[in-house]
Structure formats: structure tokens, C-alpha cells
Design a protein around this nucleic acid. Sequence first.
DNA 1: CAAACTGATTGCTTTTTGCAATCGGTTGCA
DNA 2: TGCAACCGATTGCAAAAAGCAATCAGTTTG
Lengths: 173, 173
Amino acid sequence: MSMDRRSGCPINLSLEVFGDRWSLIILRDMIFGGRRHFRELLNGSMEGIASNILADRLKRLMGLGILTKADDPSHKQKAIYSLTEMAITLVPILAHLGAWGRVWLPVSAELSIRAELLEKGGPQMWDKFMDELRHEHLGMPLDTSAGPSVRATLQAAYEAVVAGKAPGASPAA
Amino acid sequence: MSMDRRSGCPINLSLEVFGDRWSLIILRDMIFGGRRHFRELLNGSMEGIASNILADRLKRLMGLGILTKADDPSHKQKAIYSLTEMAITLVPILAHLGAWGRVWLPVSAELSIRAELLEKGGPQMWDKFMDELRHEHLGMPLDTSAGPSVRATLQAAYEAVVAGKAPGASPAA
DNA sequence: CAAACTGATTGCTTTTTGCAATCGGTTGCA
DNA sequence: TGCAACCGATTGCAAAAAGCAATCAGTTTG
């Protein structure tokens, strides 16, 4: 919530939504990590988000229409968080943000391989990924066999780097 | 400064740089508004930044290598802030951020015309704009006459909308 | 010499962030 | 049936950041 509306500038309004240290981290973990539950986001967060902040941001993102929440039929207490189309269209922004960080900031090799592949894949890969997310989160049909999923591809590359057999990059240790 | 290094993830590191409500606003005003001086940024800011926060962010962005400061020869007290290449390569991110905000947030017509044109111009227009910024801020040569500058084009469109004779859009009032 | 302007700085209050502990309810297992 | 582990949060508290208003010393302008 908390729509300040400091101005109607698109960049300012986007910043009022994402101008904090956690909202995009949560969306990153949902989009690239495939996390859907509170505990997954809490314990799987590499940066160590606190539970009250996670709860606050989930609430806020729901209020903004970026996430939705539904009951998990397998567990009466479990909630499943889903991305809306609004969130899925952030993929190009996250790709650019990762690409920029990879060039200018002290990223680690393991964690930047995903950003590198996503950058090389370009808009075509981003579109494919967004279609996969629409399938997972919105129940949209997935077009006929387009090979391994983007997330699986990124994950496999990450694991290869961790294992020290980086394809095209020098081993970390 | 304040490099937490919560993790070496490119998106996280980018967020540690821009995950606040003001840093990108300042860069937006420098990039699209052409502002170079403290007072220009302070008084020209549509969102009303406070002087202490502006001073803090300028210092921080300099420490990160995103801005540089130089004396203005015409005025012994005046400082000129310049974008580094690191800042100039943010243009695509700002373009995407503006495009996303324009679609999903309650932007005003006057302030979103720039984002619209920049989106339609695509990477080609962004590259041209970045070259112009390199010329202004880094003293790089500008390639032979490529028509009116991107900033001038955006500014003209903005003024046209304000004047109510929006090309292709309905008048605001 | 005075007024206006330069890039800031200081003191202060309000708001946000982040940590640690905890909550009531659910589930799985012995 | 009991009980530990897990579920999505909530609460209390301290620290940090944001934001406001006033002010600063030096510079330029008139």
C-alpha cells in the first residue's frame, strides 16, 4: 500500500513500488527460485530476510496486485503465493538489473552465471521464461514442447559452475 | 558506501546500490533532465528531495563510482556532477522501469510521454542517447550529425503534451 | 557593501528497518 | 494419544534512515 504518489512519473512510481531492499529479492526468489511458500522464501533467502519483513512485503505486494495468495489443498495452513502478470512482466527488468550488476559490481561466479545466460538469451529467452511463469502461476497453457524450461537451464548452469566444471568460465576454486 | 554484501548475486548487489527511494530519482534527473548542479537537483526535483538526503546520496553515488564531481570554472563555489559510464549504462534499466510503470501504475499523461517514446525507440534510441550522455559527461566525440538529440526530442514531446496538443494522445485538460 | 546564490551541514522528530522471541493452529510420527 | 516439527505470521524493542527547518561560510552580482 502506502501509495505516496510523490509524482506521476513512471520511474518514480516504479520506485515507490520497488525502491526498497527486499521486494525485488522476494520476487527474484519466486521467479528464478520457483519458491511459492512463506517458509521457502524465509529459509531459502540467501540474504537472510526476517520473517516480519517478509510478511510485510508479501502483504504489500498483494495489495499492489503483484502477488496473489491461495490455500494449498494439501495442507490447511499452507498458503501458495502466485505471481500476477504484473510481476511476470518484471522479467526483463530483472534481466537488465542482473546484467548491469554483473558488469559493475563484485558478483560471485556461481551466482552470476544465471544472469549471464539470461543476458545472452535476450528478449527471446525472456519471453519463453515469461510463458513458463504464466503456465506455473496463472494456469495458462504452455505451447508445444519447446525443450527444457528456462529455469531448469539456468539451474543446471548454476550447478555446473558450483561443481567446478563451468562451461566457458574458469572454475571457482 | 555501506557495501553490505548480503550476497554476491547480481540482482542483490544492484539492489544494494539502488534499493532506496532517491538514488535513481537523482540519476533520472541528471540523465533525462540534464541537471548537473546541486541546486538544480534540489529545486528541480519534482518529488521534493531534502537537501541533506541529496547531499548524502551524491556522496554515496560518488563513492560507488557512479558519479564524479568537478569544479565549475565559471563559479568557484559551483560543483558540476557528471555521470560515469557506470551510470550511463543504466539507461536501458530506466527505460524498462518507465515502460513497466507506464503499463501498471497510475502515471500522469504529461510525465509518461517520455517513457512511451523511449520505449518505442527501443535499444537503438537508448544507444543514441547513451552516446549523447557520453559526449556531455565524459567528453567523448559525438558521431556526425544524427539529427536532434534524444533529450530534446523527449522534452519537445513533453511540452507538446503539456500544451494540450499531444501527438497521438488525448489532451490532459 | 548588501542581497542573492553556491554546495552543503546541523539538530531534531517521525518513520522504517531489522532482530529475536513468540503465537495459535496443523501435521506427521511413534 | 501425545508430542515434536512445521505452518504463516505477530509482537516488542532497538537501531537506522527519512524528512523537515534552520543555518553555515564563501562567491557572485548589483
